[in-house]
Computed example of a mutant assay.
Amino acid sequence: MDQLLALKVFVRIAETNAFSRAADAMNVPRPTVTKLIQDLEHHLGVRLLQRTTRKVSVTADGSAYYERAKRLIAELEDMDQLASGARSQLRGRLRVDVGSVLANRILIPALGHFRDLYPDLQLELGVSDRPADLIGEGVDCAIRGGEMPDSSMVARHLAHLEWVTCASSAYIAARGIPEHPDDLLSVTGEGQGGRHTISGYFSSLTGRAFSLEFNRHGERVAVKPGDGTSFNESTAHVNALLHGLGVGQTFRFAVAPFLGDGSLVEILPDWSRPAHTIRLVYPSNRQLSAKIRAFADWAVAVFAPFDSRPRVDGE
């Protein structure tokens, strides 16, 4: 029995609650996964996993073994990377999940540099605005925005991203320029000077539509999307704004070229929305991984030019 491989397989099954997910994530045949667990349990003389036709769960003995096993694997990976010396020796798989507009506008254009630094590292970039289950889906780390409700995750600050409210030049020509956020509270209208349409964004996880937020000198206005179009993918949302489907709020960096060439027009510039905090997050049991540390250091440098305000100590 390859005990180290068996340990890795067991940890992945414990985290995903499925033999098939562990096999797919590790690129190991399902029969091999089953045999490794059987051999490991026979070697230890205890049952680590409770299997039924519907699910797999960790036994009490398995839970204690899992905590020790995951720490050991993390330490072994770090030892290997330290012993290998040069950073170019980083090897293996690194799965990173990131939202669409962040991937397409920031990360992917810079990935050539990362590949030059770590040519032997297999990077898998999961691009979606749906928040991934890092443990359940075998994701090593993710780039996420907003609050951090999950205390089991470690976070590293990447940037504060500035918002902009905008619409296409064609839309503005047809509908006029809103003078106050209240002008956006009405629903779809037609013709010159007609009522405005919101091109909104909704959560792919909850289905909840996000309001447009406006702040000025203590006054706050929130505008909910009405009968216009809404999207749950950030790149599609930018594309919708470009094609005149309404007024929307998005990250300034994502539309800067289009604001520069006049395709999009900034509206209500005297009103602001609090900056959106972007972080690299990963499960606390993976914080010793040299691969994650290398990606985090690189990502901090890549996002630095997009940071709209100084960091707060501890971020």
Rank of each mutant, 00 (worst) to 15 (best):
Gln3Ala: 12
Gln3Phe: 13
Leu5Ala: 14
Ala6Asn: 01
Lys8Met: 07
Phe10Val: 01
Ile13Val: 08
Ala18Gly: 06
Phe19Cys: 03
Phe19Thr: 06
Ser20Tyr: 06
Thr34Ser: 15
Leu36Lys: 13
Ile37Cys: 04
Asp39Cys: 10
Arg47His: 07
Thr52Lys: 11
Arg54Ala: 04
Val58Ser: 02
Val58Lys: 03
Gly62Phe: 03
Ala69Ser: 11
Lys70Tyr: 04
Leu72Cys: 08
Ile73Arg: 00
Leu76Met: 10
Leu76Trp: 01
Gly85Asn: 06
Arg87Asp: 14
Arg87Ser: 15
Arg93Asn: 12
Leu94Thr: 02
Arg95Tyr: 02
Gly99Trp: 05
Val101Leu: 07
Pro109Glu: 06
Phe114Pro: 01
Arg115Leu: 14
Arg115Ala: 15
Asp116Ile: 07
Asp120His: 12
Leu125Ala: 06
Asp129Phe: 07
Gly136Met: 02
Gly136Ser: 02
Gly138Asn: 07
Val139Asp: 04
Ile143Lys: 06
Arg144Ser: 12
Gly145Ile: 06
Gly146Cys: 09
Ser151Asn: 12
Ser152Thr: 15
Ala155Asp: 05
Ala155Gly: 07
Leu161Lys: 04
Glu162Phe: 02
Ser168Glu: 07
Ser169Asp: 14
Tyr171Glu: 02
Ala173Asn: 14
Ala174Asp: 14
Ala174Ile: 06
Ile177Ser: 11
Val187Trp: 09
Thr188Tyr: 00
Ile198Gly: 13
Ile198Val: 15
Ile198Ser: 00
Tyr201Ile: 13
Thr206His: 10
Ala209His: 10
Phe210Lys: 09
Phe214Met: 08
Gly218Arg: 09
Glu219Pro: 04
Glu219Gly: 05
Glu219Lys: 15
Val221Thr: 01
Ala222Thr: 12
Pro225Ala: 09
Gly226Asn: 06
Gly226Gln: 12
Thr229Gly: 05
Ser230Tyr: 04
Ala236Glu: 10
Val238Asn: 12
Asn239His: 10
Ala240Leu: 03
Leu241Glu: 10
Leu241Tyr: 07
Leu245Met: 15
Leu245Thr: 13
Gly248His: 11
Arg252Ser: 04
Gly260Lys: 13
Gly260Leu: 15
Asp261Ser: 00
Ser263Arg: 15
Val265Ala: 02
Ile267Phe: 05
Trp271Met: 08
Ser272Cys: 09
His276Ala: 13
Val281Arg: 12
Val281Ile: 11
Ser289Gln: 00
Ile292Lys: 08
Ala294Val: 05
Asp297Ala: 14
Val302Ile: 14
Arg309Leu: 01
Arg309Pro: 05
Asp313Asn: 14
